[in-house]
């Protein structure tokens, strides 16, 4: 039996909204410790990793590890009916369940229940090594969203370079080019923290960075981690309960 109540149901809704443009079908991997999602996009250029710790839920019960295969677009349709202050209670049987039951409860007078059909999804889980990164940048999530959105009008590839003076986002395109420099700042309102061992410069597809910023409502700050010649990690922490992490493979110089 899997049964868990998320008091702030809107957090789960925001997670599904954040990943549904990248991931069509995915497993909710439920275990005693957490509910997790790991999936690549169809082009295998990016990877989404979600974790919601059991402590994020009340009345968490997971008798044995279970993978619940969902279609994110269909899940999103059901979550459209979630009230903004509703809790969600998830329920599924142990042995290859056909459906996931979700109860939406807000005020005392209304309880809505939905059943989402599940499917068997064969996925390859990638092992992501827990290695330190050369550069880690923490900045406001909405500021990162604005930069990525603004630069997309100039071209399709963004060079992110982290150096002594700060982090530079650069785009070169047919109509011209642009640079946005983000420097360390202690100001409460838009605090920027840059930890750098060695300068790093990598090229990324803006289209994917834009997909990642769909997670902006989940977190005040985004954490961007880079090392030479490996995928960037764009992390949206969910309070102390988990995260949505996006990994994006760089574009490689020929």
């Amino acid at each position: 039996m899997f049964e868990a109540q998320l008091v702030e149901g809107k957090t789960f809704k925001a997670i599904i909204e954040a990943i549904k443009d990248l991931v069509v079908d995915c497993n909710l991997d439920c275990s005693e410790e957490e509910v997790a999602i790991q999936s690549m996009d169809s082009a295998h250029v990016s990877l989404v990793a979600v974790r919601l710790s059991a402590s994020a839920f009340s009345n968490y019960r997971c008798d044995r590890p279970n993978s619940l295969g969902i279609n994110t677009a269909n899940m999103s349709k059901i979550l459209k009916m979630l009230g903004k202050d509703d809790s969600i209670t998830f329920k599924a049987e142990d042995e290859s369940p056909d459906s996931l039951t979700m109860l939406f409860e807000g005020g005392k007078s209304t309880i809505a229940d939905f059943e989402l059909k599940l499917m068997d999804i064969e996925t390859e889980q990638l092992g992501i090594p827990d290695t330190p990164y050369q550069c880690t940048i923490q900045m406001r999530a909405d500021e990162f969203q604005r930069i990525v959105r603004d630069l997309q009008v100039l071209g399709d590839t963004c060079t992110i370079s982290c150096g002594k003076e700060g982090v530079r986002f650069s785009v070169t395109g047919a109509i011209g080019n642009g640079n946005i420099l983000v420097r360390s700042s202690d100001e409460d309102k838009d605090k920027v923290t840059i930890n750098m061992e060695e300068p790093v410069e990598l090229n990324f597809a803006l289209r994917y960075l834009n997909f990642f910023t769909k997670a902006t409502p989940l977190a005040e700050n985004v954490v961007i981690s880079m090392s030479p010649d490996v995928p960037v990690v764009v992390e949206y922490p969910i309070e102390e309960f988990g995260h949505v992490k996006f990994y994006l493979a760089p574009k490689i110089e020929e």
Binding site: V45, L47, Q125, G127, P129, T157, N203, P250, K251, I252
Partner: peptide, 14 residues
């Protein structure tokens, strides 16, 4: 244009 690398070339399947 710079070619796009794929995720599976960085992380191995578990």
């Amino acid at each position: 244009r710079k070619p796009q690398a794929r995720m599976d070339s960085f992380f191995a399947v578990k």
